[in-house]
């Protein structure tokens, strides 16, 4: 319950944070919302020598419209994302998934950037970020670079963020007018996702014209269900057609096995939940 000792710095800018990270070396750890990191510290599963708190960097918070994108600062809280009108209008799927994360108290503190950088495959925000082709803006000593979600998630707890780099912003293309739904399945209300499906669907005249589907906890990273997406396009938004397409949900997955769900059950769930998510998204 009591973390190991560490030093604490609270930079006021991204540049200062990057410098602190360079100074801190391998043992430095970034503190965003802290809703995963602080429990890990309490259990002494990690013992960093220095904590770099991004909470003092105002520029990392906030949601803005930037041309054909919605740009979300990495330190924007779940709470703020769920309530944001731009998110509701243009990236509704992200808000829907965010609303299912943990509980109210955690959503007040937890941040989008923290969740994506933590990259727990059971985390709920990777699948929508992947499905919606989010762009991750990463700052380092030599400036910023942008990485697409497809390249961002490398392995469990591992992302494209390099040593000495910080995730600063997440940019979502607009999905204005799309239907969306996040279908989450867990053991108890506050448990992590056993399996979940993020779906955004564009329906034109009863026919699915575009589809984005991401899976949570079906591999070591969030997984894009491209087979399902391909199978959906051109199909009527009917239960039979959607369920048939959802049968492809396990393509490219590597479902983990644990006490809540062995792989075969997860695979089954992925198909069922995909059908439900897409149907709900299609309205």
């Amino acid at each position: 319950m009591i973390p190991s000792k560490f030093d604490y710095v609270k930079p006021a800018s991204v540049a200062e944070a990057v410098q602190a990270l360079a100074d801190g070396g391998d043992d430095a750890k970034i503190l965003a919302g802290g809703q995963s990191l602080i429990p890990v510290l309490r259990l002494r599963l990690a013992a960093p020598s220095v904590i770099i708190d991004l909470g003092g960097i105002a520029e990392l918070r906030g949601i803005r419209e930037d041309g054909d994108h919605i740009a979300i600062g990495a330190m924007t809280s779940y709470h703020d994302i769920v309530r944001d009108d731009l998110v509701k209008q243009h990236v509704a799927l992200l808000g829907q998934a965010t609303e299912t994360v943990a509980d109210n108290q955690v959503r007040h503190r937890g941040t989008l950037g923290g969740s994506l950088a933590h990259a727990d495959p059971a985390g709920d925000l990777g699948a929508p970020a992947l499905a919606l082709d989010a762009q991750m803006v990463i700052a380092g000593a030599s400036g910023t670079r942008t990485v697409g979600a497809a390249e961002f998630f490398v392995d469990y707890f591992t992302t494209a963020i390099g040593d000495g780099e910080i995730l600063t912003e997440i940019r979502f293309p607009k999905y204005t007018g799309w239907g969306s739904h996040y279908e989450k399945f867990n053991r108890t209300a506050q448990a992590w996702s056993m399996c979940a499906v993020a779906a955004a669907i564009k329906v034109d005249g009863g026919t699915i014209s575009e589809a984005r589907v991401g899976l949570t906890n079906m591999g070591t990273t969030p997984i894009r269900a491209t087979g399902v997406e391909q199978a959906l396009v051109g199909q009527p938004a009917t239960a039979d057609a959607v369920r048939a397409a959802a049968e492809r949900a396990t393509e490219g997955t590597a479902a983990p096995s644990d006490a809540d769900a062995a792989a075969d059950y997860r695979e089954h769930l992925a198909k069922v939940l995909t059908g439900r998510a897409v149907l709900a998204a299609a309205g």
Binding site: M1, Y8, K10, L31, G34, Q35, I38, P39, R42, L43, I51, D53, H79, A102, D103, N104, Q105, V106, H108, R109, Q190
Partner: peptide
């Protein structure tokens, strides 16, 4: 010790938080 129980909930700047998951600093 895993942020599940909420017994430590307080308000921080008007928002509920689990005070076990916030550093005093």
């Amino acid at each position: 010790d895993t942020s599940n129980c909420g017994a430590c909930t307080v308000h921080l700047n008007g928002q509920s938080v689990k005070s076990c998951s916030v550093l005093a600093v």
